[in-house]
Design a protein around this nucleic acid. Structure first.
Lengths: 351, 351
DNA sequence: ATGAAAGCGCTAACAT
DNA sequence: ATGTTAGCGCTTTCAT
């Protein structure tokens, strides 16, 4: 089955044939392995050979084929990033940070979107087929996935999720502590009728925030006076706030489990119910997303320290490349209370 | 260099050895190529063999190695997505749409971020090394990149950018027409003192919007009464609007080249200058980003039809997989005028 | 420091 | 329909 000389390698090729290391070797008058070494940092090669090879490579417009390299070396330098729903105001920033840092570490981002309602399990086979060196995920995850990764030796880092029973490190913002600080802030300001607009039932993050808030309230002898679900969405939260604040004995402070809902609540207060913020009602959120700095909202909230979280995630992942059997590390990073004007900070003067 | 029998393939391996098609073939008692066919849609294989193979594959937890497949077939099913700055309120949605659609088409997204100030050229070598089947990009781009792609036979689709001189298709929202509609809307409402807050100097999109707006104004006999740069950013636009609206002969309408700047301008009008929107000043933007629907802004704007644009981009790319020499297609998609309450729509009753 | 050779896991031509 | 075989382009021993 020798192919007739001169014919371009098989009939298959669909793209312009790129120069290979063999071509470069031939032109430079060296062996193919020399070319390989030339493009491998730290390989032993003389300066003379190197420059000959580089010249030939340049002439042929050669660049190493990362796919072939992956196949033989078993390392792809690709990280699978699996996110639940990029549309959420929070994830774009995460992804931005993540891709910059991974790029800086010489790693590539293979992005996977888990459509609403599905979990990571559904995309996992695809991720694994591309021989990713590691995975960073913020999606829901089952034990099967953990087992998969372990079996394959693919390290996984959970971002703002935690699965103590799964092998894999995690990085989390301390939602509980952050929410507690907001509870303190409201109570210190003299609020006693405090309502809560919660996130989706299936979001651990939302749960943590609610738990942290309510626990601290209890610890200081205050009970929630109203609660509604807002699903992390503006419209739902606005409707919830509208009806909550429309009551005769309405709350005078509102904790929303994320910023987007807080914006909805503020708009409900001002435009639907006709209350002033913070004079009639204090409103606080969680995330410190872009619009919270805007003058129209100026939201008191807790900043998730994205840079630190992302740096930690990448760091943990890169570390685990070194030692395969690395024990799972858990990093809990405190959020920063950002006090703006949407909540009063002291009890009203005359009361 | 025969390796001693029984020893695990070389000393190199860093991850648990995964089952290969050879293992599956052996267990199923068929040839390795049969296994390959079994996992190739449309290949001819008997039902009996297929099920034998699938059973063996399941037992061994086998999945085809996409990297090896890429190497031999020359098709990676990976699309390089190159974006300039994901933090911009617009790109997250693009990326979301794009990744969903590409996933649905059986393609993977390899994400590249072009840090501020750089152009696509700087990341291009990396993209190409991974043998992507195609590229979708929204980053600045030079002729060299176009030449690169052409030479390599890698199709490229420009998203909201256009390079007529480069080989490659493009999908664009018709910024000029959209901006013209906003100009019409303001003039029809009786505005004659119209100001503009422009985008970054290096953004073609920003230029198109400004050009479309100003041209239509001129065509109807109106000249811009003020102009400032806002760099697509909230803070800068707010400052610009503050000084513009603080003048004695201030504009009574403002076009901001994107929504984010319009939010800044609205906040400046209301909170910095004490003007009512739209009673004292009409403000319009461009993009229809999330907060424009919020009650606090309720911004009149032009919606970039992301779904249509993204669908077109993926479609063009997939088409060009079929015919390598496909002529570049240019798709210009009209945006939709979204009339909300931030701009008045008729001349004031008594004037 | 360099070269020869093996082979990563797979697809696709060819032969049966 | 199935098996045989030749590589895809590279990294990595091993030998020199």
């Amino acid at each position: 089955m020798k192919r007739p000389t001169g014919k371009p390698a098989k009939g298959r090729q669909r793209r312009a044939r790129r120069a290979t290391s063999v071509d470069v070797a031939r032109l430079a008058g060296v062996s193919q392995s020399a070319v390989s070494r030339c493009f491998t940092p730290g390989a032993s090669i003389s300066e003379k050979t190197r420059s000959k090879i580089l010249a030939a490579a340049q002439r042929l417009d050669y660049a190493p084929n990362a796919i072939a390299r992956t196949l033989i070396s078993g390392r792809s330098r690709i990280v699978g990033v699996v996110l639940p729903n990029i549309t959420n105001l929070f994830y774009p920033e995460v992804l931005h940070e993540l891709s910059l840092r991974l790029q800086a570490a010489g790693l590539r981002v293979l992005l996977f979107n888990v459509p609403y309602g599905q979990q990571i399990d559904d995309v996992m086979p695809d991720v694994l087929q591309y021989q990713v060196d590691g995975i960073i995920t913020s999606a829901r995850c089952s034990a099967a996935v953990g087992a998969d990764c372990r079996r394959r030796g693919v390290p996984i880092v959970f971002y703002n999720r935690e699965f103590p029973e799964l092998p894999g490190s995690s990085v989390k913002c301390n939602q509980v502590a952050g929410a507690a600080r907001l509870a303190d802030l409201l109570i210190d300001a003299g609020h006693r009728r405090i309502g809560l607009i919660a996130g989706p039932d299936n979001s651990p993050t939302a749960h943590d925030r609610e738990r942290g808030f309510v626990q601290r309230l209890r610890a200081r002898g205050v009970d929630l006076c109203a609660r509604a679900g807002g699903d992390f969405l503006y419209d739902i939260a606005r409707a919830a706030a509208r009806s909550m604040l429309g009551q005769p004995r309405r709350p005078d402070a509102l904790f929303c489990a994320n910023d987007t809902m807080a914006f909805g609540a503020m708009d409900a207060a001002r435009h639907d119910v006709g209350l002033a913020v913070p004079d009639d009602v204090s409103i606080v959120g969680f995330d410190d997303s872009g619009p919270s700095r805007w003058r129209g909202y100026d939201l008191t909230t807790v900043r998730q320290p994205l840079e630190a979280m992302t740096a930690a995630a990448v760091e943990l992942l890169v570390q685990s490349f070194g030692q395969p059997g690395m024990p799972a590390a858990r990093r809990l990073i405190d959020g920063e209370l950002v006090v703006r004007s949407s909540a009063r900070v002291a009890p009203p003067a005359s009361d």
